[in-house]
Design a binder for these strands. Structure first.
Ligand SMILES: [Mn+2]
Length: 412
DNA sequence: CAAGTAAACTACAT
DNA sequence: TCTCGGTTTACTTG
């Protein structure tokens, strides 16, 4: 979900630009962000397990647009799920399944146009579709990489290492990871909005986050809620900014809440744990280095963590499980030499499925050609969930994401 | 009223 | 195997 409300508060420093202002730049592109847009146009074909080149054509159209400005794309695709990120995903999955069922029953009663509206809401973007794009990238000599975990951290790593000059994505998280040049809302006329990290200084009260250290930025979004923390109830970006402005540490802020009776010690402990994991994930999430050809961390692990047993255990359990070279088990590994960097290289080039390294990754379109009968759809992978909902239309809301505590605050 | 929350909408392509 | 996001609008709550 990114950071709710962040881009809105950054409106004063968002610049409307056109692609000629990015002439001959190298830009990382969030592959799944484009795939999610591209697959809307072929939701029916995806639903019926039919071959389609619609989503590839979307990519080609946009790549050609970039080419006219001599912009060099570097596609970055998400890899495996990182376990720090939990909660909202399962509810998204159940919603997709419900929408698919609803679409099918509408289709069966002849209401095809209405059915497709539900198919659009149930589109399931898979690594096999990413592989279809990857095959094209290979044939055209376009740079690409499959991240070991989130594309977010991988793209920021590429920018930090000077391999790209900016990042095309819709995700506000990138700025918290440390992105310096974010390009959002690119349309097919070559217009976009640019957010530069250096412009944070120009923001004014009551949201002058230019004065915040990177650590304080992470604290602020953790308090208000982000991909890695559910946040404290009744705290959004506005209050999170105020509490962070006091200069206090997370421990100090939570203590104030407990003392004033706004938070129980149990809730504070749960949140504190979440925060430690989130803070590490933002800083040290594992990425793949295309120059070193091995798994590395987004930023170098500081001595503060290295020489503190407890802190380093927290750190290594927040940055992602990797493959053990000897046992081939996917687990938390602290010793770099125990990591199967070669297998992670195969994942990074799209040879292996990032969530299941023993499986070769094959383009969706080739899969359907080869086997004739496919079992790649959502109802096969999640047959238990699919069957759980007796058809049709058991519409009840499902929420997993609930706040840790419940604060009662007033403006003062 | 202002801040937070939740649900609805959009996309694409034509 | 298990998946990207933001914006708008209407509501609740202190
Ligand atoms: Mn993100």
């Amino acid at each position: 979900m990114g950071v709710t409300g962040l881009l809105t508060k950054l409106k004063p420093i968002q610049k409307q630009i056109t692609l000629d202002q990015l002439y001959s730049k190298r830009l990382a592109i969030d592959g799944y962000s484009w795939l999610h847009k591209a697959t809307i146009g072929c939701s029916y074909e995806l639903m019926m397990d039919l071959n389609t080149n619609t989503y590839l054509k979307y990519f080609i159209k946009r790549i050609n647009m970039l080419k006219r400005y001599n912009i060099k794309p570097y596609f970055v695709f998400d890899g495996a799920k990182i376990n720090v990120k939990e909660g909202i995903e399962s509810s998204r999955l159940e919603k997709r399944i419900l929408n698919k069922k609803r679409g099918i029953s509408l289709w069966d009663t002849g209401k095809h146009l209405e059915a497709i509206e539900y198919f659009k809401k149930s589109v399931d973007v898979t690594p096999q579709m990413a592989k279809c794009i990857i095959d094209y990238c290979r044939s055209e000599n376009i740079d690409y990489i499959v991240a070991p975990f989130e594309a977010d951290s991988q793209m920021v790593y590429l920018e930090k290492e000077g391999l790209v000059d900016g990042i095309i994505s819709e995700d506000s998280d990138l700025l918290i990871f440390g992105c310096k040049n974010l390009i959002t809302k690119l349309n097919d006329r070559g217009e976009a909005r640019q957010i530069e990290r250096k412009d944070f200084n120009m923001l004014e009260e009551p949201f002058s986050i230019g004065k915040f250290s990177p650590e304080q930025l992470r604290l602020m979004v953790c308090l208000s809620g982000c991909d890695y923390t559910k946040g404290l109830g009744h705290i959004g970006l506005t209050f999170a900014y105020m509490f962070t402005s006091t200069g206090k540490s997370i421990e100090g802020i939570l203590e104030d809440f407990i003392e004033s009776g706004k938070l129980t010690t149990e809730s504070a402990e749960i949140f504190l744990k979440e925060y430690y994991f989130a803070d590490c994930s933002f800083q040290f999430q594992r990425v793949f280095s295309p120059t070193q050809q091995k798994v590395v961390t987004l930023n170098d692990i500081t001595s503060e963590y290295l020489y503190d047993f407890k802190k380093s255990r927290i750190l290594y359990s927040s940055i992602g499980k990797v493959i053990n070279k000897r046992t081939r088990i996917v687990e938390y590994i602290e010793n770099d030499e125990d990591i199967d960097h070669e297998m992670h290289r195969l994942i990074s080039i799209g040879e292996r499925d990032p969530s299941n390294f023993q499986t070769r990754l094959v383009s969706r379109e080739n899969l359907i050609n080869e086997s004739g009968e496919t079992q790649n759809s959502i109802q096969f992978y999640y047959s238990n969930l699919w069957n759980k909902y007796a058809s049709p239309l058991p519409l009840h809301p499902i929420f997993n994401k609930t706040p840790v505590g419940s604060l009662s605050l007033s403006c003062n």
